[in-house]
Design a protein around this nucleic acid. Structure first.
Length: 481
RNA sequence: GGCUCCAUCGUCUAAUGGUUAGGACGCCAGGUUUUCAUCCUGGUAAUAGGGGUUCGAUUCCCCUUGGAGCUGCCA
C-alpha cells in the first residue's frame, strides 16, 4: 500500500477562503490520520487571474492554522514543459489533438448550440487535420490549443469516497482544452499530471469538481496511470443556500482572524461543516480531529456557514484561554482601541480581561467593552436609578455608600471580601442591595449592562489611585442627580 | 436547456429496517444576580410528496418535487 499523500491545491487568485480552509483541513487530517504526507501545490495556470502575493498570503494563513505541509509549495507555472510534454504524448497516442479554432468561431458555435437548446460542445472541427497541415500552421505561429479527444458513448465510472459510485456518459463530455494557446495547461491537464507526478493517493476537493472528474479519469487511463482515489467534499453554502462566494460577505479567513476569531475555534467550527464525529463531543483540538477523522463520517449534502455557531464556539474558546494567552492574543486590539498598556499594571489589565472575556464573541469587541476602565464614563442620570428605586433614594444611598467607602483603606478594595463587607453594611443600614448596587455599578461603568460593582472595584483596587477613582465616579454620579 | 450531485428541527447534525426521531447553535421561559454575560434547568422545532419492498421504513428501490453544482483557451 502506497504511502498516503494528499494535497491542497489552491489557485492564487485571492485570500484563503473559508471553503478552502475546510478543504485544506480535511486533506491535512486525512494525511495525518494515515501517517501520510500533506502537500501544497499552487495552481497558477491562469495568468490573467493570478494575483500578486496571493500564494504567499495563502501559505501564511495555512501556517496560522497549523496546517503544515510536508512538501511544496509547488508552483505549476514552473512546470510548463512537463505539461507540454504530456500533452504532446497524448496527441501522438491519438487521445488529444491540435485545434486552431479561433475564439470567434468557438463563440459562434456555442451561441448556435445554445439557441438550438443543445449543450455547448466543441464539434471536433480540428480532429482530423492532416499531419503536415498541422505542422505548417504551428510553425507559421498560428495560435493553437491541444484538446482531449473524448471517445464516444463510453460510460465513465469512479468511486467517490463520500458519494460512492458516480458514472457519466462520455457523450456528455466536451473535448476539453488541455493546453492553452499561451502554453499553459488548463486545470484538467495540470491536476492529472501533477497528482500523478507527486504521488497523490487521495484527491480531496470541493464537490464542484464532480462533473470534471470523468475527464480526469479519461486522462489517467490515456496515460496508462492509476487514478488516485477521489473524495468530493460537500459545498459550503451561504444563508441563501448558494455556493459560498465573496459576494456573501466575509469569506476570507484572514478577515475572521482579523476580527479576533481564534484559529483553533475556526478549525473546530469548519471541521463540523460536512463532517461530524458521530459522538456528542463538540469541541476538538486539531490533534483530536486527526484521531477521529474519516471520510465515512463526511456528509453528502452542502452545509450552510452559520455565523451564530461560529460565535458561540469562539466564545467558548475565548473563555478557555489562560489569562496570559488571552492577553497575548488580545493586546493588539486593546492598543488599537487607544489603550496605552504601558500605563497600567499587568495585574489590572488581567483583571479587566477576566471580567470582560465571558461577554466576548470575538476579540475585536474588547475595545468597546473595556473603555470605562480607562476613562470616566458618560451617561445620563436616568440610568443611575434602579428600576425599583427613586431619584432621592439613589442620591442618599450613593452618599451613604461614599461615606462608607471613604472609611475603608485602599487595600480593602481587592482583598476579595469587599462584597461581603458591603453587603453586611447594606443590611445594617437597612438599605436594599438593588438601590445601592445598581447605581454603584452604573456610576463605575456608565453602562446598563456590565460586570458587577464588586468585580469592577476589585480591578480598580490594584491601581494605587483605585480608591480615588471609585470615589470620584460616585461623586460624578451624585452630581448628576 | 443538458449533465451530475443532494434532500431529518431555522442552521450544523445523530439515528445505516424496530428510538417517545437524539444532540448542538439560535430562539423562548425559569433559576442564580443590582444589570448584562457566564452557568444550570426546561421548552420550541424536522424525516419534502407519492408509490413500492418488508411484519415493520428517516433508513432500501422507483417516480415527482425542490435545491445546488457544472456546462470557459477560470479554477
Amino acid at each position: 500500500m502506497a504511502k498516503v499523500r494528499t494535497r491542497f491545491a489552491p489557485s492564487p487568485t485571492g485570500f484563503l477562503h473559508v471553503g478552502g480552509l475546510r478543504t485544506a483541513l480535511f486533506a491535512f487530517l486525512f494525511a495525518r490520520k494515515n501517517n501520510g504526507e500533506f502537500v501544497l501545490r499552487i495552481e497558477d495556470t491562469d495568468k490573467a487571474r493570478t494575483v500578486e502575493g496571493a500564494a504567499e498570503g495563502i501559505i501564511t494563513s495555512l501556517k496560522e492554522f497549523g496546517l503544515n505541509f510536508d512538501d511544496g509549495p509547488i508552483f505549476q507555472s514552473e512546470r510548463l514543459s512537463l505539461y507540454k510534454k504530456y500533452a504532446e504524448e497524448l496527441v501522438s497516442k491519438g487521445d488529444a489533438y491540435y485545434c486552431f479554432c479561433t475564439p470567434e468561431r468557438l463563440d459562434a458555435l456555442r451561441k448556435g448550440q445554445e439557441a438550438a437548446k443543445h449543450a455547448p460542445k466543441y464539434d471536433k472541427h480540428c480532429l482530423n487535420l492532416a499531419k503536415d497541415e498541422i505542422e505548417t500552421r504551428i510553425s507559421s505561429g498560428e495560435p493553437h490549443v491541444i484538446r482531449l479527444n473524448v471517445p464516444a458513448a463510453k460510460t465513465i465510472r469512479f468511486t467517490d469516497l463520500v458519494h460512492g459510485e458516480i458514472s457519466i456518459s462520455s457523450n456528455d463530455l466536451d473535448d476539453q482544452v488541455l493546453l492553452k494557446s499561451d502554453g499553459y495547461p488548463t486545470y484538467h491537464l495540470a491536476v492529472v499530471v501533477d497528482d500523478h507526478d507527486m504521488n497523490i493517493t487521495h484527491v480531496i476537493r470541493g464537490e464542484e469538481w464532480i462533473p470534471s472528474t470523468p475527464k480526469h479519469i479519461l486522462l489517467y487511463s490515456a496515460f496508462g496511470w492509476e487514478s488516485p482515489q477521489h473524495a468530493h467534499l460537500p459545498l459550503l453554502l451561504s444563508k441563501t443556500k448558494k455556493k459560498l462566494s465573496k459576494r456573501d460577505g466575509d469569506v476570507a479567513v484572514k478577515d475572521y482572524l482579523e476580527k479576533g476569531y481564534l484559529p483553533e475555534a475556526m478549525l473546530n467550527f469548519v471541521a463540523f461543516l460536512g463532517w461530524n464525529p458521530k459522538t456528542e463531543q463538540e469541541v476538538f483540538s486539531l490533534g483530536e480531529l486527526i484521531e477521529v477523522f474519516g471520510f465515512d463520517k463526511v456528509n453528502k449534502s452542502g452545509a450552510v456557514f452559520d455565523l451564530d455557531k461560529l460565535d458561540w464556539i469562539n466564545g467558548l474558546y475565548i473563555r478557555k484561554l489562560t489569562i496570559e494567552d488571552l492577553f497575548a492574543r488580545i493586546s493588539r486590539y486593546l492598543t488599537e482601541a487607544g489603550i496605552d498598556l504601558g500605563k497600567y499594571p499587568q495585574e489590572f489589565i488581567f483583571k479587566v480581561l477576566n471580567l470582560e472575556r465571558e461577554r466576548l464573541k470575538k476579540f475585536s469587541e474588547i475595545g468597546e467593552r473595556v473603555q470605562y476602565f480607562f476613562k470616566e464614563p458618560e451617561y445620563g442620570p436616568a440610568l443611575l436609578i434602579w428600576k425599583k428605586g427613586s431619584r432621592e433614594g439613589t442620591k442618599t444611598s450613593l452618599a451613604k455608600l461614599s461615606e462608607y467607602l471613604k472609611s475603608l483603606d485602599q487595600s480593602e478594595f481587592n482583598t476579595g471580601n469587599l462584597e461581603s463587607k458591603i453587603k453586611s453594611w447594606i443590611a445594617e443600614d437597612n438599605l436594599t442591595t438593588g438601590e445601592v448596587l445598581w447605581p454603584l455599578r452604573v456610576a463605575l461603568s456608565g453602562l446598563a449592562a456590565s460586570p458587577g460593582p464588586f468585580e469592577i472595584m476589585d480591578a480598580f483596587g490594584v491601581l494605587p489611585e483605585g480608591k480615588e477613582i471609585i470615589l470620584k465616579r460616585i461623586q460624578n454620579a451624585s452630581n448628576l442627580l
